[in-house]
Design a protein around this nucleic acid. Structure first.
Length: 190
DNA sequence: CGATTTTGACCTGCGC
DNA sequence: GCGCAGGTCAAAATCG
């Protein structure tokens, strides 16, 4: 049921001190007062909505994620701001095949349902962008065919199951890909 | 000196 | 069944 949403963002080099955080995985918003948008969970789908006070050019803009993605198009909007699963390149869970629901081995073993995952791709010189939460690093791994490592973080709040991993886009090192997984059981600590 | 990071070992699923 | 790749653990090292 959970799907992966790819949001491709451009962030100026003067990256904001805080970029974005996930609020119980339903809304993706900046930590500033300017809410830019939301990702709504609707049944099995995520969809992206621009809020009225979202200034695309001002803050950052969404750009085409790329043609190489087998992305499903959402709705009828012409330009595709994000892709939807179906991408083994980043290994976010296989194809958009319902059979792959249980792809997460640990989730299957523990009987939990598949965790929500949202990936952000943004242009940034710094690797770990402040997203309002406190994280503790627990692993680092080189990924095949990528010159840069992937870093694993867990939410520092005790009992909170949220994880994220951070890596650079292997095709364009100017981009950082941050993948969030799970729902916070608390508000942002900052 | 407690908290966090580092880093290699370990574990598991998957493809062959 | 084996090896690879990705994810996690945990002891040691480092940080503040």
């Amino acid at each position: 049921m959970a799907s992966n949403v790819y949001v491709s963002c451009f962030v100026p080099y003067s990256t904001l001190p805080s970029f974005a955080y996930l609020n119980n995985n339903k809304h993706l918003m900046t930590t500033t007062t300017n809410t830019f948008s939301s990702i709504e969970s609707s049944g099995s789908d995520h969809f992206f909505e621009q809020s009225t006070d979202f200034e695309v050019s001002d803050f950052f803009s969404f750009e085409d994620w790329g043609n190489e993605q087998q992305s499903m198009d959402f709705g009828s909007q012409g330009n595709q701001n994000f892709g939807y699963q179906g991408n083994e390149l980043y290994d976010f869970g296989g194809s958009s095949n319902i059979q792959n629901e249980g792809e997460n081995s640990r989730a299957v073993r523990s009987g939990k349902e598949k965790k929500e995952r949202v990936a952000l791709r943004m242009k940034s010189e710094i690797d770990v962008v402040d997203d309002g939460y406190k994280w503790r690093k627990y692993g680092k791994k080189m990924v095949k065919n990528s010159p840069t490592p992937r870093n694993y973080y867990r939410c520092a709040v005790d009992g909170c199951p949220v994880k994220k991993r951070v890596e650079r886009d292997r095709d364009d090192m100017k981009y950082v890909i941050t993948t969030y997984e799970g729902n916070h059981i608390h508000d942002a600590p900052k």
